[in-house]
Design a protein around this nucleic acid. Sequence first.
DNA 1: CCAAAAGTGTTACAATTACACCCATGA
DNA 2: TCATGGGTGTAATTGTAACACTTTTGG
Lengths: 231, 231
Amino acid sequence: MAALLAKNLNTLAGESGDYFRIALSVDCAIFGFDDHELKVLLTRSDLGEFKNQWTLLGDMVGFHEDPDQAASRVVKKRTGLRNLYLEQVHTFGRPDRHPRGRVVTIAYYALVNIGKVRLNAGTPDLDWHSVGDVRQLATDHRLILENCHRRLRTQGVERHLAFGLLPPKFSLAQLQSVYEAIEGHPLDRRNFRKKILGMHILEDLQEMEKAVSHRPGRLYRFRGLIPGTFF
Amino acid sequence: MAALLAKNLNTLAGESGDYFRIALSVDCAIFGFDDHELKVLLTRSDLGEFKNQWTLLGDMVGFHEDPDQAASRVVKKRTGLRNLYLEQVHTFGRPDRHPRGRVVTIAYYALVNIGKVRLNAGTPDLDWHSVGDVRQLATDHRLILENCHRRLRTQGVERHLAFGLLPPKFSLAQLQSVYEAIEGHPLDRRNFRKKILGMHILEDLQEMEKAVSHRPGRLYRFRGLIPGTFF
DNA sequence: CCAAAAGTGTTACAATTACACCCATGA
DNA sequence: TCATGGGTGTAATTGTAACACTTTTGG
C-alpha cells in the first residue's frame, strides 16, 4: 500500500522521487489573557537536542486527518477546550528546521479564556508564559510564535476575536486591557469606549462588577458569534 | 534510510504511525496584468480525473527543498522569471482534496510583468486567463485561487506590490488601472494621483508616452525595492 | 476622607470622498 | 475639429486623536 502510494505520487512529477517522506505537523500558539498580559501556553520539548527548552504545543498530522482538525485536537488535548476559533498562520518548511529529519509544520493560533482551561497534567511543565517574556524556544518556535503574535496584532479590533480571551461577562475596562495587551501600548479610555460601543456588538447586562475596591464597572457580553465558535 | 527516518519520526508521537507518507506540494497563483484585467497563469491538468481542466502551476516539494524555493522553481520553470516576490498564502490539506492520495499543498502568489514572460512551450496550454472569468479548476484550485486573489486585494496599496505587474516605465493611468483590476472597482483619478504622488515612491522620468492617440501621459518608475525582488 | 478605577464630550487634525473643466495628441 | 484620455484643486465629510473632571465604591 505504501509502495503503491509512493508510485502514484511519483507520477506527479517532482524534482526528486522522495518527497513523499516529508512529515507534516501542526504547532499551535494558544493565547490567553491574565493579569493584564497576553500569555501563551508552552510545554517542555521532548526532543533530546532541545531538552528543557520551551515549545509550542503541536503534534504530527495523521495520514487521514485534516490539518485544521489536527490543530483542534492538539488544543483539545492540552486545554480540554473544543470548538475554539483557530486560524492558520503560516507553514514553516525549511529543510533544516527540525533535528529529527524533514518535518514541515503548519502554525495556528487560538484564543482561549484562561479561566476555563484545565491544563492537562500529562504534559510536562505545561503552563502560561507572558508573550513579552518569551526568549528562546525549541527549534524555530520563537519565529513561529512571533508570526502568530504579529497576525493577532494586525487582525484588528474589527474581527472581534479578542472576546475569545475573556469570560462571557466582562467590563469595558477588561476588554480595553485585552486590546492593550495585544497591541502592546495603552489606549485612550474615552476613544476606546466610543469605538466599541458604536459597533453595537456588546449587550449591556444591566449588572455591575462586585466586590471591587473602587467604583464598579458595568458588565457586558459579546453579541454575535465569534467565527468558528459556538457559545 | 527511509526506514530509519520513519522510525525517528514515529518517536514524535502522533495519532497514527503513517503520517510520514504525506506528500507536500506547492501551487502558485501567478498574476499578471494586461488589457486592464488581472490575469492568472493556468495550464491543463495532467491528472486523469481532471484531464482538460485548468489548474494553477505547481509541483512537489523535494525532500531537501525549502517550500519557498520550490515555489520559485515552479515560477522560474514556467515563466523564465526569477527573484520575484512570492508570498505564501495558505496551506490546503483536506485528506480528500487530491485524487492521487494524500497531498498537502502550500499556496503562493506571485506578481509578474506579463510582457517579460516567455511562456514555457513544454507546458500544455500554458496561458493567461482573466481572473474574473475563471470558473472551474482541477481539484481545489478554484478555492486556492480565490484565497490568493483575496490576499492580493486585502494587501493594500501601501505594500507597493502592484509594481511587480508593470513594466519598469509606466504612466499613472496604467498604475491606476492595475489597482482597479485588483480591487475590482473604479477609482477617482485625482484622488489616486494625490495619494500615490504623496507617497514619494515614484520617480518622474521626464518622459512621455509615445504614439498614443491622445494626450500622452508622463512616465514614472518605482523608487525602492519591491520586497523579495532585485531590479 | 482617601485611593482607585468608572464614566463622560468636545475640539483639533488627518484622511477620504465627491466633483468638473481645460489640455495635448492622433486621426 | 473631433475623440480620447491626461492633468489639475477645493470643499464636505468622516474618522481619529488628544485631553480633564466628576462619580462610585471599599477600606
